[in-house]
Write a protein that binds this DNA or RNA. Structure first.
Length: 282
DNA sequence: AAGAGTAGCAACCGCGAGTGT
DNA sequence: AACACTCGCGGTTGCTACTCT
């Protein structure tokens, strides 16, 4: 990506993680816990730098992550928190259980900032844009609409109403039918041959199921450390479950949201809002 | 059907803060 | 006080899928 590597990475893997690498990482963290990222790759048998391992774990493999389907409430909360906190994604993420800073940052950059712009709001300051800028933004939006509707001969799909985008985890480059998985893992005993089964929050390689929800299940056994590139190495099990520790997520979201609304209703005083923002920082 | 353009997002990077020696 | 090391954060990049022409 154009920059010199931050540390010596001779012989280290880069780019997308393979299922095998994920499995190794998850297994290691299950056994030894998080932390000591520097030494972790070596101990876990990974040819990755510690940073990469940490990132992968934090943004993708952690059991309490919920991915996709950012709700309208969450949308609103993100916008409000951003107006208070700015680009402090980790703080914002901390107020959205199961969401990662990276996901929120991406979601902001690709959706919310554009939406605010189109509504005539500066996504950085959350203030109304000055008219000339607003006009420019609107003109651009109109151009874009014209452009996208100009090939109007063929029957087109109806214009999508600000679609609530469903974020599926990015698929790994293995060809197979996809299914959306929730995100957790757990180790259960296998009914097939007594090997250990590691359930990963993976979303690909597995056959569709009508709910679009399932686990990727990677089979392990002690003397067969498979390379999971081959999709046939997986078995998908459908599960519907509560992500651990999130059963009152909506509650806490609601509470926070209510708290904020209350402040807005009862007091326009910036000092109060600031102190609310301060409290979020703690 | 094919190429060009765009959107989405996982992963990378540098930097700064915190901590230990 | 100075240095080394680790970790976490926010900005950026590049790959892939999708859409348009």
């Amino acid at each position: 990506m154009g920059r010199a590597p931050c540390c010596s990475k001779v012989g280290l893997h880069r780019g997308p993680w393979t299922p095998r690498e994920d499995t190794l990482l998850v297994k290691y963290i299950q056994a030894h816990g998080e932390g000591h990222w520097r030494s972790l790759p070596k101990k876990a048998g990974l040819l990755r730098c510690g940073k990469s391992c940490r990132l992968r774990w934090m943004n993708y493999l952690r059991p309490d992550i919920k991915r996709g389907n950012i709700t309208a409430d969450e949308d609103d909360l993100i916008i409000r928190l951003h107006s208070l906190l700015g680009n402090r994604w980790s703080l914002i993420a901390g107020r959205l259980p199961g969401r990662t800073d990276n996901e929120i940052k991406n979601y902001w950059n690709t959706h919310l900032s554009k939406r605010l712009l189109s509504q005539g709001t500066d996504p950085n300051t959350h203030k109304k844009l000055p008219d000339p800028v607003l006009v420019q933004v609107q003109v651009q939006a109109v151009r874009k609409r014209k452009k996208s509707s100009s090939g109007a001969n063929k029957p087109k799909k109806p214009p999508e109403p600000e679609k609530p985008k469903i974020h599926l985890p990015k698929p790994i480059r293995v060809t197979a039918n996809s299914v959306q998985c929730t995100n957790t893992f757990s180790t259960v005993s296998s009914s097939q041959g007594g090997g250990e089964v590691l359930q990963l929050p993976w979303t690909e390689y597995v056959n569709d199921d009508e709910n679009g929800t399932g686990f990727l299940t990677a089979y392990y056994n002690n003397n067969d450390d498979r390379d999971f590139i081959n999709g046939s190495d997986f078995e998908c099990q459908s599960h519907h479950h509560q992500v651990p520790g999130t059963e009152d997520d909506s509650d806490s979201l609601d509470k926070l949201y209510e708290e904020y609304l209350q402040l807005l209703r009862t007091n326009e005083d910036q000092v109060q809002l600031d102190s609310f923002a301060e409290s979020l920082l703690l």
